[in-house]
């Protein structure tokens, strides 16, 4: 074998997937932390607002963490755009009839679901972080009273509907993403593969359920 052209990992489709897996793991971590923080809404306004203040007071550490998440998100998106633009050309003429045998709905909706999540993230930031759109009538978004923002923000039924749908996509995205991560990073092992699928599925459902619980609790009047 003569000398190989020196390729770097990210030149390859596999490498791009590896970047997606690693950044996905970071984003997964963020989603879980974010969820755990938000769940404090069930513990009352003092708890949630106090937590929000603590976060703010972290200052540079918080900005560093946000930067890591943002860079991960950008890389995750850049990689998927690169991969999808390649793959769109990989089958220019499709089948008249194609039956899938093993794939899951979660796997098939990764592309669409990912795009939906992107749009949702933009909306979510606009909703609760800045400038604070689509709040209940008469309520003005507050930079410090997070609890009031949540209660007011979810009082609007169509807003809650958006959140619920988005969380369904998130749950599926986390399921297929987490399951794929083992395979993409070469950690998959036949002995554990079904267990890994179960864990990924359970976690995906748990995160989605917990995130849905919050807006639903507001609509149901449990959180007020």
């Amino acid at each position: 074998m003569s000398m190989a052209k020196a390729i770097t990992l990210s030149d390859t489709t596999i490498g791009k997937k590896v970047v997606m897996a690693v950044t996905g793991l970071v984003l997964y971590g963020f989603v879980v932390a974010h969820m755990l923080g938000n769940l404090q809404v069930f513990m009352g306004p003092e708890q949630l607002n106090g937590y929000a203040k603590k976060l703010h007071d972290l200052g540079p550490v918080l900005y560093a963490a946000r930067a890591v998440v943002l860079v991960s998100l950008v890389l995750h998106v850049v990689m998927v755009v690169q991969l999808l633009s390649r793959t769109a050309a990989a089958r220019p003429i499709g089948y008249r009839l194609k039956k899938n045998q093993t794939t899951t709905y979660a796997a098939l909706t990764m592309k669409f679901g990912g795009l939906a999540l992107m749009l949702f993230i933009v909306y979510h930031l606009a909703h609760f972080t800045f400038p604070g759109v689509s709040m209940a009538a008469g309520y003005k978004h507050s930079a410090t009273d997070v609890y009031a923002n949540v209660v007011s923000g979810f009082k609007v039924p169509w807003v809650t509907a958006i959140y619920v749908v988005a969380q369904l996509f998130l749950g599926m995205h986390l399921y297929h993403g987490a399951f794929s991560l083992f395979q993409t990073l070469g950690l998959s092992h036949p002995r554990y593969v079904e267990k890994a699928r179960f864990v990924a599925q359970t976690l995906g459902i748990a995160v989605a359920a917990a995130n849905i619980a919050m807006p639903v609790a507001v609509v149901a009047g449990i959180v007020k």
Binding site: T13, I14, K16, K17, L83, R86, T87, A90, R91, N100, Q101, T102, T103, T104, A107, L108, M110, H176, F179, S180, Q183, T184
Partner: peptide, 8 residues
């Protein structure tokens, strides 16, 4: 195309 773990 790339692999997205459908296992088809």
């Amino acid at each position: 195309g790339h692999c997205s773990n459908h296992y088809e």
